[in-house]
Design a protein around this nucleic acid. Structure first.
Lengths: 187, 187
DNA sequence: TTTTTTTCTAAACGTCCGTTTAGTTACTAG
DNA sequence: CTAGTAACTAAACGGACGTTTAGAAAAAAA
């Protein structure tokens, strides 16, 4: 054997994720990543292959990062109330990190929706799909809702996440709360 | 005098706008613009200064492009119903052009929200500001609404436009209609 | 201590970006 | 018809991008 790595891969992915999260994929350069991650380009390439691979890892890391919030959501038994709480939790975890930057997956979705990158799209689509499934599950807890209106409401809530991501980037906490309350008023 | 321009500036701005609209600012290169606009780089630079200037012109051109829809909205006398109709009109004008790409200003807003470009931000902010003013005006037509709830609803609707822009990019016409109906269900 | 193996540093790679420039073409005015 | 001027073409610019490579440093095994 020989020399050991002087960095932990999870640690540097976390830092890369934060940079991607703040600036998006294209606007984040290898030079910026080098500085933020505290390691050399060579190390980045030997660990993650290329910039694309690093971004994919960052997206996956984001998923584990929000898995706590997602698990709490999944285990909820209060139907619509759980979805609303999930919206609040999403925002609060955003703000805890000190930066206003919305949901990384939603942001990525916006940046890559006209792009043809299949790996990234799969990653986003699966995330959004899981979220939609959970939302539907919670909506179904209300026996007064029929299947057709559940689908409409799930679609509505999934798109409402885009408004939430935009709000997280520029609006005040109070405005964001108002937005969430308004969104769930109709359900 | 000497040779005349072989192109009309408004015509080529229209083409540039469509490309920016489809791909966003950064993902649209001068090479792509050259091809799409059908004129040489030199001509682009002599007419618009630089890429940034061309984008600014494209944004302004977009405003005049949607001015008909905006004027109809402005002249409406049916309150909330006018706002809803404006959402429908926005979508239908998007689809008329054959491409699903949402609202250019909203897309630009997403792309530049972490950016520090003042000219672009002014252009977007004024557009959004005008829109918010119009929304408030329509909401105030309903005498049963108090000022506090009007502000909340205006905020909600402005953010709902982000969901609409996202929907326009990937959802079906039916899903978009469902989203609009859900959004206006209790206003 | 010496050898081996891997990580690290730093410089260079080719490519594409937005932008500029030199030289040609074509139209207008006299 | 000619001279002058503006619009055109195409090639090149410097710089930044993502990526690769050659060589130095360092840690484990002998």
């Amino acid at each position: 054997m020989a020399r050991k790595k002087q960095y932990n891969e999870d640690d540097v992915v976390e830092k890369a994720m934060n940079l991607f999260w703040k600036n998006g994929y294209e606007a984040t350069s290898m030079q910026m990543l080098e500085k933020e991650m505290g390691i050399n380009k060579f190390s980045i390439y030997s660990s993650f292959g290329n910039k694309h691979g690093l971004f994919l890892k960052s997206l996956k890391h984001y998923k584990t990062k929000v898995s706590t919030t997602l698990l709490k959501f999944k285990n909820g038994t209060n139907g619509v109330e759980d979805i609303k709480q999930f919206f609040y939790d999403t925002i609060s975890s955003n703000f805890k990190l000190g930066n206003q930057k919305g949901c990384l997956v939603t942001n990525t979705y916006n940046e890559f929706s006209e792009n043809e990158d299949q790996l990234i799209k799969e990653e986003m689509t699966s995330f959004m799909g899981n979220l939609k499934a959970l939302i539907i599950e919670k909506l179904q807890m209300d026996p007064s809702k029929d299947e057709a209106s559940i689908m409409k409401q799930a679609n509505y809530l999934l798109l409402a996440k885009h408004g939430l991501a935009a709000a997280a980037r520029v609006n005040t906490t109070e405005e964001i709360e108002d937005y969430i309350e308004m969104t769930f008023k109709n359900l």
